[in-house]
Amino acid sequence: MKINDALSGLVVALFAVVLWIASSRLPAMGQDIGPNIFPQALAVGLLICAVLLVLRGLRGLRKTKARSAHVSTFSTTGAADQDAHWFTLPEWIGNGHAVLAFLLVPASLLFYIWVSEPLGFLPTAFVLLLVLFVTFRTRLLVAVPTALACALIIHTIFYKLLKVPLPWGILTPLAW
């Protein structure tokens, strides 16, 4: 999703203020130049950028108004016209399959984080690959053997060659 520069600027400004306050609470180490100096310098820099961003964003919106066009809060069409609206939704938002494919990427990471220890690497990787393959329009007949082979290959590379202790999970009794 594209958001107008004025709003990005506000977010950055908010972050800068929080950063300044959090830095000022850092313990001073008995010197004038403590651990707070550098982050506070960053906060000042961010704040300057934020103000400029807000100004630029508002200018863009004003231009839209001057063209006597309507400044809509949401726009799904004007992907190229980020400056003209508060929010510009991506073109793919109406396409259910695209939204699903997009959400599946972070979801598969969360799946790995939560499941890999108890379930083990091989089953987790197999399920993860299979679901993504099928979502990206690979036929099941191809997807199943590919997912199995690739899970085994990646397991061999990292577990055998690089000695990464990937979890065995439910396959522990079969560990090789």
């Binding site: 993860l128 690959l129 993504l132 393959f133 990206f136 690979t138 990646i154």
Partner: peptide
């Protein structure tokens, strides 16, 4: 690429 990208993610 439908096969490649999931592999890269893994």
């Amino acid at each position: 690429r439908g096969i490649l990208m999931p592999l890269i993610l893994l």
